[in-house]
């Protein structure tokens, strides 16, 4: 779906590139998390996925469409939706439904089709009933859901999110993350840039970036258990994984591919069970 060949991007001439020599393939329907310290090039990379940035060197292709080709621009942006950290600055409509209608309107769809897509998108994110509300009256979480509805109304194949939960309360976070999971199950690809390892653990593939390069690419099981390595990059593994890792360091017999409280409870009960039976024997 998205192919990146030898991508290098430099913001200003003479400065060191923000991403360098990057190669990447992303298939349809994948759920990918991108993690890495600040300034590692995550944001630069994802801005290439819908042609907001054009490579200095190399190529980016979205479903065979090259982002350098200005004729495919609208089609690329229709297929790859992008949500940013600050939802407030992405909302352009004076009411909820008008904001969702912005994307389909840009595609030049007839009013009846715009209406159908707006209703459908609002239904998907659970904002039905707020159609005529002013965006200003929504909570932070609702604004982010509205921003997502605006993307969904364009019926994208992939949604790219740049720290969508950074300024949300736990309730809002949960809603957005649940929605991402649901959308992914419906076949929409998700690319989620995040600082939270707990959120990254929800993906099926994690890319770790550092200094403009992808330094690791694998399943959460592969990546998140490398506790010391993550720490050396300035990243914190999920606390629950670190707990398991510290237990393991102390010589307890536990795995470290554990990212949720539920999985940890399971693992620790098993350990206790084993200890009990060992004592009896």
């Amino acid at each position: 779906m998205i192919r990146v060949y030898n991508l290098t991007y430099t913001y200003e001439k003479g400065r060191s590139p923000a991403v360098k020599g990057l190669n990447l393939e992303i298939d349809e329907g994948e759920y990918i998390a991108i993690i890495g310290p600040n300034g590692c090039g995550k944001t630069t990379l994802i801005r290439h996925f819908n042609a907001l940035l054009i490579p200095s060197v190399g190529e980016v292709q979205v479903a065979e469409l090259n982002t350098r080709d200005s004729k495919s621009l609208l089609e690329i942006r229709r297929r790859v939706g992008m949500a940013f950290q600050n939802a407030d600055n992405q909302i352009v409509g004076m009411s909820v439904e008008e904001d969702v209608a912005f994307g389909p309107g840009n595609l030049g769809l007839p009013a009846a089709e715009v209406r159908r897509r707006v209703d459908q998108a609002l239904e998907m994110v659970g904002l039905t009933g707020l159609q005529t509300h002013s965006p200003h009256t929504l909570s932070g979480g609702q604004k982010q859901l509205l921003a997502l509805a605006g993307l969904l109304a364009m019926e994208p194949k992939i949604i790219v999110l740049d720290e969508p939960t950074a300024s949300l309360d736990p309730e809002g976070k949960k809603k957005v993350l649940t929605l991402l999971k649901t959308l992914n199950l419906q076949g929409i690809g998700i690319i989620h840039v995040t600082h939270s390892m707990e959120e990254a653990a929800l993906a099926s593939r994690i890319l770790v970036m550092n200094q403009g390069e992808v330094v690791a690419d694998g399943s959460p099981g592969d990546i998140l258990r490398r506790v010391e390595w993550l720490k050396s990059l300035g990243l914190a593994p999920p606390q629950i994984t670190e707990l398991m890792w510290q237990l393991q360091q102390r010589g307890e017999d536990v795995g470290t591919s554990i990212f949720t409280v539920d999985a940890a409870v399971e693992e620790i009960s098993n350990l206790l069970e084993r200890l009990k039976s060992a004592r009896k024997a």
């Binding site: 942006r77 940013f84 992405q90 007839p110 009013a111 209406r115 707006v118």
Partner: peptide, 22 residues
């Protein structure tokens, strides 16, 4: 700056577009 980027990402181009209501 952020608004322009978000609008472009949603396919905004100068000129003709359609609306929710006619």
């Amino acid at each position: 700056d952020e608004l322009i980027e978000a609008m472009e990402a949603r396919g905004y181009q100068q000129g003709h577009r359609t609306y929710l209501r006619e």
